[in-house]
Structure formats: C-alpha cells, structure tokens
Amino acid sequence: MPIFTILGGVVMNWGRIRAIIRKDLREVGANRMALIPMIIVPVLMCVIVPGAITAIVLTAGPDSLSNAASLEQVIPYYPVPAAITNQVQRLLYVILNYTFVPFFMIVPLMLATIVSANAVVGEKERGTLETLLYTPITNRELATGKLLAAFLPAASISFGVFIIYFIVLNVLGYALAGVILVRSLIWIPVILLLAPAVSLLGLAVTLQVSFKAKSFTEAQQIAAVVVIPIVGLVLVQVTGVVIFNALYVILAALALGGLAYFLLTRVISRFNREKIISTL
C-alpha cells in the first residue's frame, strides 16, 4: 500500500517516490561506465592521496613536502592534542584532520550533481520524462524522488569513503609511527551535517538547472558553478585563513542546509509541466 504523508501541506504518495528512487538506483547500478568512476575518484582523492602523503612524510620526514615550511607555520593555530609531541606527526595531524576536510565535501557534492543531472536530463534525453509526466505522479513527488535518488547514493558513498579513510589512515599511522592520527571530533559534524548540507545545496542547484537544460553537459557545466566556492574553501583552509572548529561547521551546515531547503521549495513550486513538455 502506498504511504501518504503531508509535507508542506501537500499530500505525497511515498509509494511513487520509492518507485522513482528504486528505478533510478537500478539504472545507476546498471551503468558500470558511470558507476566505476563514481567510486574510484573518491577513493583516489580521499584515501590514496592522503595515504601516500602520510606514508611518505612518516618515512622520509616533513622535507618531502614542498610546502612543509609554510604548513608548519600554521600548526599552532590548530588544536593539536598535546599528546602528539613529534613535529612531523603534529603536521600530519593538521593535514589529515583539517586540510582534507573539504575533500569530504567535494565528494558528495560531485556525486550528487552527477547523479541528479543525469537523473533529470538523462530522462529528457532518452525520452522517458514525457512518459513520466503522463502518469499520475505529482511535481512534488517527482522532484522529491529525484532528489533522494541522487542524495542517497552520494551520501552513502561519501560515508563509506570516510570510513575507509578513517581505517586506512589510522592503520597506516599506527603501523609506521604508532600513532592514531585521524581522531579530531570535528569529523562528526563534518560528515554528519556539513557534507549532507553541501550535497543538498548542490542538488538543489542541479535540479533547478536540469529541469531547464536540454543536455547533460549543459546541466553539468552550470552545476559546476556550485563547486567553485567549495574549491575556494579548500584554498582558504590550506592557507590557514579560516580554521574549522566544530561550532563553525555546525553553523555553516545549518546555513547551507537552510539555503538548500529554500532553493528546493522554489524548484518544486516553479516546476512547470507545460514548459518542460514544450522543451522536450
């Protein structure tokens, strides 16, 4: 039996939303060519790269990093546990717990935009959106289904990649230097709040663009605009201008989440079947 709920005063049929999500996930799963890079790129960015840096620095010393000197200058600004006394390990602690934070936002953002752009524009390009519009599904149900169908895989892959990061880097640190490096509590709000909020914001923009765009490339190019501020954050973070602390992370997550919610309600209320069908 379909489950009906009321969201924003509108009755939604969760049976239909579930059908959309399940169908989209099955399509993503069936498309190996798309699925493999979606897993390899995050693993490369978030496990292989930091793993290599850690292994090199712990075995060859900090001089192996070309910008080690400038990085060392910022160490005092971060709350590195007093228990870690070794300068090399303090440096790695900062890199692994702070410098890499933005990567864990880029990954879900990237996944969410790719999946959702494909989920909407792909339906247009393959002529299936028209068929969907002929069924009793409402605008809100369709948008919600598309949103969750992109959010769920993005969030779970990102979470999975973080778990791998946590295990691999700590095993590596322990094996090479007897130290657990990834252990800042900042990861809790980052992974559970900030990353989902950032991907929701990316999704809101991508959905807005996708319902209007004619091709996948067009949708992706416009959605990429969302990625630029995040890349900016990375640079800012690396140069030590802004230092993440748990409160900032929670506030940022709330602000971005609020913005995402506002944009999503706008996308749904402006969803115009007539316009969509005329551009097909």
Binding site: A19, N31, R126, T131, T135
Partner: peptide
C-alpha cells in the same frame, strides 16, 4: 506518444512494475 519512451536499461518486467507503482 511518438517520442515517449521507456527505460532501456531495465527489463520489460522492471519497466512495467515501475509504471504500475506510479499508478498505485
């Protein structure tokens, strides 16, 4: 409609199940 298609990645049965769900 002439241009309204169904999902090529899915099997016939999966396609029909999906649309049946949309029709409750």
């Amino acid at each position: 409609a002439e241009l309204a298609r169904m999902y090529e990645h899915l099997t016939v049965r999966e396609n029909l199940r999906f649309f049946a769900a949309l029709y409750d």
